[in-house]
Nucleic acid binder design. Structure first.
Lengths: 194, 194
DNA sequence: AAAGAATGTCTCAGTAATGGGACATTCTTT
DNA sequence: AAAGAATGTCCCATTACTGAGACATTCTTT
């Protein structure tokens, strides 16, 4: 997906690092100047423009990267075990491990001017990513494993909120990934009445 | 704090609505063009500029508004009861009721390039607002009322994460304030091992 | 209805952000 | 060490955003 059909590993690396940088920057400031993204990627703005025609192209790549990463992580977590509770736990960890990507994905789909439409390809991809998750939740609730007082939508919001808290703790308070996962899961599992 | 020492109620209203609009917009997009803020406030960009010299002035006013609102709400919640658990509950509700203001305040202080410094007036104000809160938490933990496995910092992040989830549920899923508060408190109280 | 206050409209100059050409420099590979 | 790839430097045209003057319009108050 570079600017030509054949590209070296170097180019793939640079392209990837720009995307990662953009996800970090845009997550905090959607309209940040591209200079900041380049800076974060330790690259010149000129180089950034060699890989991405404009802001929209870059954003598109970010969204693709995010969807891919989150979707795969969720899928793997789901398939890693048969036990329903452990599945939920692994999926939570997947969210935390996706870190900023997960929080950014969620943010993009809760912008107040974002009209969620399933005929939109982006939205249906988003829905796909979390459909496994939501289906699983309904199953757990039917089994009486999680509290009947919480709605599926609330659990989804709570999930995202606690993942965000975990990511912030990791970045800001320099906590270890494992500690953050443990705390996050403790709070999340209890928070849904498990 | 308008553009003159004496100003009518109209001016205060407009100024206030611009600030509220700015908090909404900037919370989602820090570098959004001021046009968007004006639009949200149902006002011309020209009018916006009559009240605020530039972006920085507007941002300063937003921060003041936010600090004031959150600080007062927290204080009132704290003073509204003697019971330590109920205090915690009321403070949580205060956070949810402050809505975007609370989430924005938290966001501003967790930006990855934001160096938190207590000698900075803004930061110390932020610390003040949550010092009551944190002190109270330490008390609860010493009493053995909340789990010893969660750290104070984690509870703070969790608090903000669940408030954010509540605010999103309210805006996005059009849930009632009371329902959101109930769900939020259910998850938060259990999430800290209460 | 008249006076004054507040906002809107139109305009424009100044500034910042963007996208990309031309060439130099550095890095990779052989 | 030479060739080719990738990036950096410098530059410039275009566009978007900003801040404010001058005047028209609307709203408020009396």
């Amino acid at each position: 997906m570079g600017h030509s059909f054949f590209c070296s590993d170097n180019m793939k690396d640079t392209e990837q690092s720009i995307i990662e940088a953009a996800i970090l920057i845009f997550n905090e400031d959607l309209s940040a100047p591209l200079e900041k993204v380049a800076e974060q990627a330790q690259v010149t703005r000129r180089t950034l423009h060699r890989y991405f025609k404009d802001r929209n192209e870059l954003m598109k790549s970010c969204k693709n990267e995010i969807r891919k990463a989150c979707h795969i992580a969720m899928q793997n977590a789901y398939n890693s075990t048969e036990d329903p509770i452990q599945r939920l736990e692994r999926m939570f960890y997947a969210g935390v491990e996706c870190g900023t990507k997960d929080t950014f994905l969620h943010k993009l789909h809760t912008l107040h001017d974002h009209e969620h439409q399933s005929h939109d390809q982006e939205c249906s991809d988003y829905d796909d990513t979390f459909s496994i998750w939501k289906t699983h939740l309904k199953f757990l609730q039917k089994q009486g494993l999680i509290s009947p007082m919480v709605t599926i939508d609330w659990v989804h919001q709570l999930f995202q909120g606690i993942v965000a808290a975990s990511v912030t703790s990791r970045n800001n308070a320099a906590m270890q990934l494992n500690d953050v996962k443990k705390l996050g899961w403790f709070s999340f599992s209890r928070g849904i009445g498990l």
